[in-house]
Amino acid sequence: MIQHVVLRIIAKLLAPFILLFAFYVQFHGDFGPGGGFQAGVIFATAFILYALIYGLENAREAAPPVAAQIGVALGVLIYAGTGVVTMLLGGTFLDYSVLSANAGDGQHYGILIVEFGVGVTVSAVMITVFFAFAGRRGVLEEREDVVPTEEKMDG
């Protein structure tokens, strides 16, 4: 954990705004630049910033790894599930027109839902990958059967 006061306070102030900006990018992607891919990455950035300043343990409290792992699968499920729903409603796979009485509105709903799925998966994968890299030392300390690499280098 970093003890620098300015960094700690700025990080705490910035994190909610980064999250809010991620939601803006997510749901404003139909009208301006943005969408699920960008929003997912920005959303993950907030947690990574938090982890860099406040340490991995505190970040794990904020974003439990299990929740992130569920998100990895959930996003794909939302995306593919939308396709299945459109099939059940009588359309073809990922044909959003059947989601509403007005075909144009249906397309709009479909695009919003699918982009949300993309955002969930991307942000969850980025958070999980960061935690995996940052937590690797902890995993090694846990296991007795692995010789730490520094000792190996000396031998």
Binding site: G75, V118, A132, G138, V139
Partner: peptide, 25 residues
């Protein structure tokens, strides 16, 4: 895009397998 999301999903799962899912705590 569905295919691309599945690729990202697969890469995420593969990293978890290689480095541990970060649940050591």
């Amino acid at each position: 895009t569905l295919g691309e999301v599945v690729v990202i999903f697969t890469a995420g799962v593969a990293v978890m397998i290689l480095l541990g899912g970060g649940t050591y705590r």
